[in-house]
Amino acid sequence: MSSIDEITSSDYVLGNKKSLLWVQDSTALVFGIGAGILQLESFKGFAMFVVGYLSVALLYIIWICRLQPAKYYQSPINDIFIESFVRELTGYVMAWTFSYALVG
């Protein structure tokens, strides 16, 4: 009986990660563009990224995972908070720099 719970479909594990990555990518870029338009500089910009990233992750857990991230991700903390942090940070910095230069 217990083995039923452990069966995972690798396709759906990947699919869940993909949908999370899509949410994180789009929000990171949007936050970056927003930070550039607001002309945020240095510390404020990075603070905006951290706040935005964390709140998007929390909203994802609350809204899309319905407070049960363990149901959809094998290691929720790592998958949702850590794995794509650097990727989103660089994407955010790019969008931020771009819109900062365009607007300023």
Partner: peptide
């Protein structure tokens, strides 16, 4: 700007190129 783009364009490619809806069962 070239360096920053090289580092940061991955999310853009993901948004432009991926189709998130379909899960490739056959792969």
């Amino acid at each position: 700007w070239y360096f920053i783009s090289v580092l940061g364009l991955n999310p853009v490619y993901n948004l432009l190129l991926s189709d998130t809806e379909s899960i490739d069962i056959n792969a």
